[in-house]
């Protein structure tokens, strides 16, 4: 696959770059000294206010991006930098190459994951025209590192949007859930698109689903993870989708310790099989908590519960069930029919 957006013009000189920074930020905000970097192999050496030249285009580097993972909120991702494209002034995210291999835990299971720039670059090409994914292109730097240059998405995490909808849960169910399910179906269809093309997202979590305020759509981000699958290539993606759906239907996690403390009557109705198979302290059988949830929708959630006997193998199966469940919610609430 050829690198994209490389310009046939000569690379900018240091003086050109300085002029571009001044034009963008003004003389007073232009630093006296900054590095011009073309080889990003040691991403720790790329500092605030440096300029990285990729495909002959200069990017003025700003802060690190952050991510909550392994229980550490705001963990800096030193290889992911916000930057200003000095040609058009737009904000970009630069993902530098970080060949990370790590173990992640899902319940009691440990999975070895890899961070793969090649995979993310391949998927960026694949989803260039798809509304429900982050967009961007990739460029090889002077040392051959595959740098992904991502369009900045203006908007919050989708889960935080949903948490703010409605008054109590009944109000959320009556007035908002159909719309949320419609948006989740879009997200699910987007993952089906990946699977149909032989790709997995690899890291489906609710903080990787962003509500794009400009385009008013939900968009998947961060698909550079890969892992050696066993029998089923897509099961981990499906498990992530199930966890998100449980969150959306419950408008947040329904946690066993909270029920034990605040709603002992509900706590006493729960069995082990009602809990999420991935996170044993979360309730998956939400009908026991919110009895007005239709059977058809709750049955989908139960596929991700500890008591499940059959698991989804494909996004298509989940989409089929969700179409029926969405219609049942619409009938029950008189919305979105």
């Amino acid at each position: 696959m050829p690198q994209r957006n490389s310009h046939p013009t000569a690379p900018p000189t240091a003086a050109d770059i300085r002029r571009l920074v001044v034009a963008h930020a003004g003389e007073e905000r232009t630093p006296d000294k900054f590095q011009v970097i073309t080889d990003t192999s040691d991403f720790f050496k790329v500092e605030y206010n440096d300029v990285v030249v990729l495909g002959d285009r200069p990017y003025w580097v700003k802060r690190y991006e952050k991510e909550g993972r392994f229980g550490l909120d705001d963990e800096p991702k030193y290889w992911v930098r916000r930057a200003v494209d000095l040609v058009d002034g737009s904000t970009k995210i630069l993902k530098l190459v970080f060949h990370e291999e790590f173990e992640t835990r899902i319940g009691s299971m440990v999975i070895t994951c890899f961070r793969s720039p090649k995979k993310e670059a391949r998927i960026l090409d694949l989803v260039a025209e798809h509304a429900n994914f982050m967009h961007g292109h990739w460029v090889l730097d002077a040392a051959g590192n595959n740098i992904r240059i991502l369009e900045f998405i203006h908007g919050p995490r989708y889960d935080t949007v949903v948490e703010g909808l409605g008054g109590d849960h009944r109000d959320y169910f009556d007035h908002h859930l159909v719309g949320v399910l419609d948006q989740f179906v879009e997200a699910l269809q987007a993952i089906k698109f990946l699977h149909d093309h032989g790709e997995k997202h690899g890291d489906i979590r609710r903080d990787h689903l962003i509500w794009d305020l400009d385009r008013q759509v939900i968009r998947w981000i961060d698909f550079d993870y890969n892992y050696l699958h066993r029998e089923s290539m897509f099961s981990l993606d499906l498990q992530g989708l199930g966890n998100i759906l449980i969150f959306l239907v419950g408008r947040g996690d329904v946690l066993v310790p909270d029920l034990h403390r605040d709603r002992r009557d509900l706590f006493d109705t729960l069995w082990g099989e009602d809990l999420s198979i991935s996170y044993k302290h979360r309730v998956a059988n939400l009908k026991k908590i919110y009895p007005y949830i239709p059977e058809s929708l709750n049955r989908i959630l139960l596929h991700f519960s500890f008591g499940a006997k059959i698991f989804y193998e494909t996004t298509e199966q989940m989409l089929d069930d969700l179409a029926r469940a969405r219609d049942d919610v619409a009938s029950a609430t008189g919305r979105g029919s």
């Binding site: 299971m109 066993r230 029998e231 089923s232 498990q239 500890f306």
Partner: peptide
Amino acid sequence: SHDEEFIFGSTSNK
């Protein structure tokens, strides 16, 4: 285990 089958799938069940 049940958890492993959920996450990785089972060839014999398939």
